[in-house]
Design a protein around this nucleic acid. Structure first.
Lengths: 194, 194, 194, 194
DNA sequence: CATGAATGAGTGTTCATTCAT
DNA sequence: GATGAATGAACACTCATTCAT
């Protein structure tokens, strides 16, 4: 049971994204995903434990590559201020480039049951850790306030990015996400005060 | 259909909160809510259009009083910097005081279908408007940067508060929410830079 | 859940017997039983815990009245020899009179899963107890051998009756069941020896 | 299709017995039997027409040797009274010696669908014929009553043995089967009467 | 001969909503 | 207004069988 690789594995993951994006979480039946992936219903169960596993895997596979990209990009950046900029930029650019995936991960999969949400939460932890490291870097480098609460700061950063992307989707992508990198970066670094 | 007041109306709303808090969104059946409210299943449909309407009303009734509280409190505060402080403080205090309601509005109701989420979104707009006004006040008063993008700033503020509360719930309320008001207020106002 | 009486309760039980008799155990879907009983599928679950419960109840209700009939009839019979005769007679007469029920309880329900079989076994225990009492009576009355092993004797009696009925059904009811009462009674009492 | 011999043929039959004995009829999937037999799923279909064929063959192969043993043993016994004793003894001894096989043939395979049951019935006919011959022998030898109904008597004999074995299994083999040969033989021959 | 990946038909159960009383 | 019995649509998952290699 549950081979986690192969052509069909990828086909099912991608089909799930398309079906969820088009029909919404509550209308993404297994049979619909199978048809979209051009496999039989039962084939899905050769690659995944159950429907929840498909959904968690969608998030894991897609978000995983996203997180890896961010990790890699941050390696070649020295200053924590610039790292934060890079992180915001990649976060926005990636999701702006794949609206369908953005909708699925930001909106649809959040309607899921506790089991799936738990799986999603575990994957997101990796991302939150990266943010923590950037903040800690900045403190160590002496560019961020030494009394910064890392966890609170991380929640500000993640909460802001998440809300911004969600809002962008809910407003039908009608403005540029990546156009806000500058603005938000400055908000984080310098705050609202004149 | 759909009297929106009365003893039973309130009983049903409160029963819904209790049932969702105790059993989770996906186990909050109409019949369970009816039993908890000590009315017949059918009676719910004399006061609400359908189940979605019950859920949206839960959010509306409970969040409505919350928003009014914030509005009122802000009236007696002059400076936008202090208004922002007050907003954060009330946001955290209110939810910290009623953990059950916090869980229902922050976690459970977000698993709902598009219809309910839309209803919730509309109610939240009032809150977002209040945040906008605080930001605009600050610009007008000359204490916030004049080039602040009001909408981006509002997303930062709301996104951060929301993520902070969610995180607090997910970590079993094991630290103080209101203990973070100071820290987060300073993050907003002065940013992360040393 | 699970009101165990009422007009519809009976209708569902009877529909189940008809459906199983006509289509066989493996083709007796809940929806088919519901249609036959002229109720909605869901209604079945107002009266029964699940499908297994329906099947066990079929056996319980039908066999229950059968066992009560036997119990009652034995009361008015003094001698254990005659009691045994009466038991065999009623056993055969009842099943001969309702061939459909005979098929369902003898053939179809025995193909069921362990859960149902367990339920059936528990109901049969009452019948086996009655047989035991007849045997014990006979020993006490001094008409049966005092060294008779009650349990072994009971197995002979029940096993024989059961096999005889099953065989009669498998041979398409083409001979008379009640015509064999005499013969079998004498076999039990006097044995095969000349 | 369907070679009925060979190393793998036997391996599959034996694997089926083990799997059914361990997991029960309703959990004896073809793939599980294949794994136990160390062949591929598809290989089973080179030796058997379908799953039913496997199950019937299990009964046929195992019961076949049992019946042959009985046939052979009876040859060297003269008197019908002793033949009946021998038949009961071998019946009980064989099944007592291989509890796993006893469970499979007495309990598990009886849950099967009509097709398999029909196959089983045909095999059992050979056994029933042997019983008939013993009874007829006895009548001819003048030791059994001449008015004995052979078929009814056969049903008593088979029904009793079958019920006794089933009961022994259901009671977890906790008493001796072969210890009951005497008792049951006397019941058959001399009846219950003092 | 043998493999094992792929197929796809088939069904018990839940629960929001209705409506006769 | 209030009841609660009745409705019936909707869907994830299993597993015997096939067939390309």
């Amino acid at each position: 049971m549950a081979k986690r690789t192969g052509e069909k594995y990828d086909a099912i993951i991608d089909a799930a994204v398309r079906v969820i994006a088009e029909h919404g979480y509550h209308n993404a039946q297994v049979s619909k995903i199978a048809r979209e992936a051009k496999v039989a219903d039962g084939t899905i169960y050769l690659y995944f434990k159950n429907k929840d596993d498909v959904l968690i895997s969608v998030f894991s596979e897609k978000m995983g590559s996203f997180i890896s990209d961010v990790e890699e990009a941050l390696q070649s950046v020295e200053s924590a201020v610039d790292q934060l900029y890079t992180l915001i930029r990649i976060h926005f650019e990636r999701l702006e480039k794949d609206r369908r995936l953005a909708t699925v991960t930001q909106i649809e999969l959040r309607q899921s049951n506790p089991e799936v949400r738990k799986g999603i939460g575990e994957i997101l932890k990796r991302y939150l850790d990266i943010i923590d490291q950037v903040v800690e870097n900045g403190i160590r480098q002496g560019v961020f306030r030494p009394d910064l609460d890392v966890r609170a700061t991380r929640k500000m950063i993640f909460g802001t990015l998440d809300e911004t992307v969600t809002s962008w989707i809910m407003n039908d992508y009608k403005y540029s996400l990546s156009g806000q990198v500058e603005q938000i970066h400055r908000l984080f670094i310098d705050g609202m005060r004149k």
